[in-house]
């Protein structure tokens, strides 16, 4: 059974009388433990595809099976629950809550879950990204690279099946970006499925497989031949 199975997926946006097709007949499967980069220029539909894969919106037509189940059968509340349990998000602009501590930011997804020992889970998650020393810092007191590591900790805290990283290095210097990619590769090595959305080939080459999209169609879907292995900056991760 595939983790994700997309069959003939279509997405159109309707504004008044105008119908804008965004995705045309998309087909692919992703298995557990893969590291897939979805690549394409802006306007290609890669973000829309990520939104559909992560249950933030639904396709217009076609089938999306997650863990063998067609998500058409799920209502919005169940999709919210699925996002909480199965999906972790890492955004380009971090999306951390202002005026809130690092620890509380990581605890945010837990407030919508039934998991026990939330404090311990959040601390463990922060430890895995090397941020234990900043638990009670406010998010405006830490650097961009640290913010993205907190965001990764937040994505991990509910132990999701898939992590979606949408241009995770876009707002970072190369050193911090490298650390983020190192962390994502490390998570993948531990068996976590990662789906990376990017328009940069250098970033995409950190994945094991690249799906290229243009104008709503898949251009290519192939394994990465010369994979880039990120090395963490020793100063950043202690």
């Amino acid at each position: 059974m595939n983790l994700i199975n997309i069959k003939n997926l279509k997405k159109e946006y309707t504004t008044g009388d105008v119908i804008t097709p965004v995705l045309n007949d998309i087909n692919f499967k992703i298995d557990k433990g893969e590291f897939v980069a979805i690549m394409g220029p802006s306007g290609s539909g890669k973000s829309t595809l990520m939104h559909i894969l992560s249950f933030l919106e639904r396709g217009t037509d076609g089938v999306y099976e997650f863990k063998g189940q067609d998500i058409k059968d799920f209502d919005d509340n169940y999709l919210a629950e699925l996002r909480n349990k199965e999906i972790g998000f890492v955004f380009q602009s971090f999306n951390l809550l202002p005026r809130t501590t690092v620890l509380d930011n990581v605890k945010l997804p837990l407030t919508y879950s039934k998991l026990k020992n939330q404090e311990a889970l959040a601390k463990k998650s922060l430890e895995s990204v090397g941020m234990s020393h900043r638990l009670n810092y406010y998010t405006n007191q830490i650097s961009g690279g640290e913010k993205q590591r907190v965001a990764i900790a937040r994505a991990l805290v509910c132990d999701p099946a898939v992590i979606f990283a949408d241009e995770p290095t876009g707002n970072l210097d190369s050193k911090s970006g490298n650390t983020v990619m190192f962390l994502l590769q490390q998570l993948n090595d531990q068996g976590r499925t990662i789906i990376l959305v990017t328009h940069e080939t250098d970033t995409a080459n950190h994945a094991k497989r690249i799906i290229r999209i243009k104008d709503g169609n898949i251009l290519s879907d192939e394994q990465v031949k010369k994979r880039t292995i990120a090395e963490a900056d020793k100063d950043l991760i202690k």
Binding site: L56, F89, P109
Partner: peptide, 8 residues
Amino acid sequence: LRKAVGAT
């Protein structure tokens, strides 16, 4: 963000 991480 809250909706993305599971808020109904």
